[in-house]
Amino acid sequence: MKMKEIASVIRSKNSGPYELTMDLMFPNDDVFEKVVASNVISRERIAEIYQLKAEEVLSIVIFPKARAIKATIVRPMASGALGERDVYGAQQHAPLMDLEVEL
Protein backbone atom coordinates (compact mmCIF):
# COMPACT_ATOMS: atom_id res chain seq x y z
CA MET A 1 0.00 0.00 0.00
CA LYS A 2 1.02 3.57 -0.44
CA MET A 3 1.90 5.56 2.67
CA LYS A 4 -0.78 8.17 1.87
CA GLU A 5 -3.44 5.46 2.10
CA ILE A 6 -2.53 4.48 5.66
CA ALA A 7 -1.07 7.58 7.36
CA SER A 8 -3.28 10.23 8.99
CA VAL A 9 -0.61 12.94 8.71
CA ILE A 10 2.35 13.29 6.34
CA ARG A 11 3.97 16.73 6.58
CA SER A 12 7.22 18.65 6.40
CA LYS A 13 8.32 21.91 7.98
CA ASN A 14 11.44 23.85 8.89
CA SER A 15 12.93 23.08 12.26
CA GLY A 16 14.84 26.34 12.38
CA PRO A 17 16.39 27.83 9.21
CA TYR A 18 18.91 25.00 8.66
CA GLU A 19 16.90 21.82 9.19
CA LEU A 20 13.82 20.26 7.66
CA THR A 21 11.69 17.83 9.64
CA MET A 22 9.12 15.35 8.34
CA ASP A 23 6.33 13.85 10.46
CA LEU A 24 4.29 10.76 9.68
CA MET A 25 1.40 9.91 12.01
CA PHE A 26 -0.88 6.90 11.95
CA PRO A 27 -4.53 6.39 12.90
CA ASN A 28 -4.06 3.41 15.27
CA ASP A 29 -1.40 1.46 17.14
CA ASP A 30 -1.69 -1.54 14.83
CA VAL A 31 -0.81 0.37 11.65
CA PHE A 32 1.83 2.42 13.49
CA GLU A 33 3.58 -0.66 14.84
CA LYS A 34 3.51 -2.39 11.46
CA VAL A 35 5.02 0.63 9.73
CA VAL A 36 7.74 0.86 12.40
CA ALA A 37 8.44 -2.87 12.06
CA SER A 38 8.67 -2.59 8.26
CA ASN A 39 11.57 -0.12 8.72
CA VAL A 40 10.40 1.75 5.62
CA ILE A 41 11.42 5.08 7.20
CA SER A 42 15.10 4.46 7.77
CA ARG A 43 18.09 6.74 7.58
CA GLU A 44 19.21 5.04 4.33
CA ARG A 45 15.77 5.23 2.75
CA ILE A 46 15.33 8.95 3.54
CA ALA A 47 18.81 9.67 2.16
CA GLU A 48 17.93 7.79 -1.02
CA ILE A 49 14.57 9.53 -1.54
CA TYR A 50 15.93 13.03 -1.02
CA GLN A 51 19.29 12.29 -2.69
CA LEU A 52 21.29 13.09 0.43
CA LYS A 53 24.44 11.75 2.02
CA ALA A 54 23.71 9.50 5.01
CA GLU A 55 25.11 12.09 7.43
CA GLU A 56 22.68 14.71 6.08
CA VAL A 57 19.86 12.68 7.61
CA LEU A 58 20.15 14.00 11.16
CA SER A 59 17.73 11.73 12.98
CA ILE A 60 14.88 9.28 12.75
CA VAL A 61 12.73 9.34 15.89
CA ILE A 62 9.94 6.90 16.75
CA PHE A 63 7.40 8.61 19.03
CA PRO A 64 4.73 6.09 20.14
CA LYS A 65 2.76 8.62 22.26
CA ALA A 66 1.64 10.37 19.09
CA ARG A 67 1.92 7.23 16.90
CA ALA A 68 4.46 9.19 14.91
CA ILE A 69 7.73 8.74 13.04
CA LYS A 70 9.89 11.81 12.56
CA ALA A 71 12.79 12.25 10.14
CA THR A 72 14.99 15.34 10.22
CA ILE A 73 17.36 16.29 7.40
CA VAL A 74 19.77 19.12 6.65
CA ARG A 75 18.12 21.76 4.44
CA PRO A 76 19.67 22.06 0.96
CA MET A 77 20.40 25.69 1.90
CA ALA A 78 19.54 28.02 4.76
CA SER A 79 15.92 29.13 4.61
CA GLY A 80 15.55 31.98 2.11
CA ALA A 81 19.11 31.72 0.75
CA LEU A 82 19.85 31.84 -3.00
CA GLY A 83 18.32 28.82 -4.74
CA GLU A 84 15.51 28.49 -2.17
CA ARG A 85 12.34 26.72 -3.34
CA ASP A 86 10.27 26.48 -0.16
CA VAL A 87 10.97 29.06 2.56
CA TYR A 88 8.75 27.37 5.17
CA GLY A 89 9.71 23.85 4.08
CA ALA A 90 6.03 22.91 4.08
CA GLN A 91 5.94 21.06 0.71
CA GLN A 92 8.88 18.68 0.96
CA HIS A 93 6.83 15.74 2.22
CA ALA A 94 5.39 14.61 -1.12
CA PRO A 95 7.81 11.75 -1.97
CA LEU A 96 6.87 10.09 1.35
CA MET A 97 3.21 9.89 0.27
CA ASP A 98 3.95 7.40 -2.48
CA LEU A 99 6.27 5.12 -0.47
CA GLU A 100 5.17 1.49 -0.72
CA VAL A 101 4.56 -0.15 2.67
CA GLU A 102 4.02 -3.87 3.22
CA LEU A 103 1.51 -4.27 6.05
Binding site: K13, T21, D23, S59, V61, A68
Partner: peptide, 13 residues
Protein backbone atom coordinates in the same frame (compact mmCIF):
# COMPACT_ATOMS: atom_id res chain seq x y z
CA UNK B 1 -1.39 17.52 22.58
CA UNK B 2 1.39 14.92 22.41
CA UNK B 3 1.50 15.20 18.61
CA UNK B 4 2.01 18.95 18.96
CA UNK B 5 5.42 18.36 20.57
CA UNK B 6 6.55 17.07 17.15
CA UNK B 7 5.71 20.30 15.39
CA UNK B 8 8.68 22.23 13.97
CA UNK B 9 11.04 20.35 16.30
CA UNK B 10 13.79 17.86 15.49
CA UNK B 11 13.23 15.67 18.57
CA UNK B 12 9.82 15.53 20.30
CA UNK B 13 11.21 14.35 23.64
Amino acid sequence: VSAHTLYEKSDPC
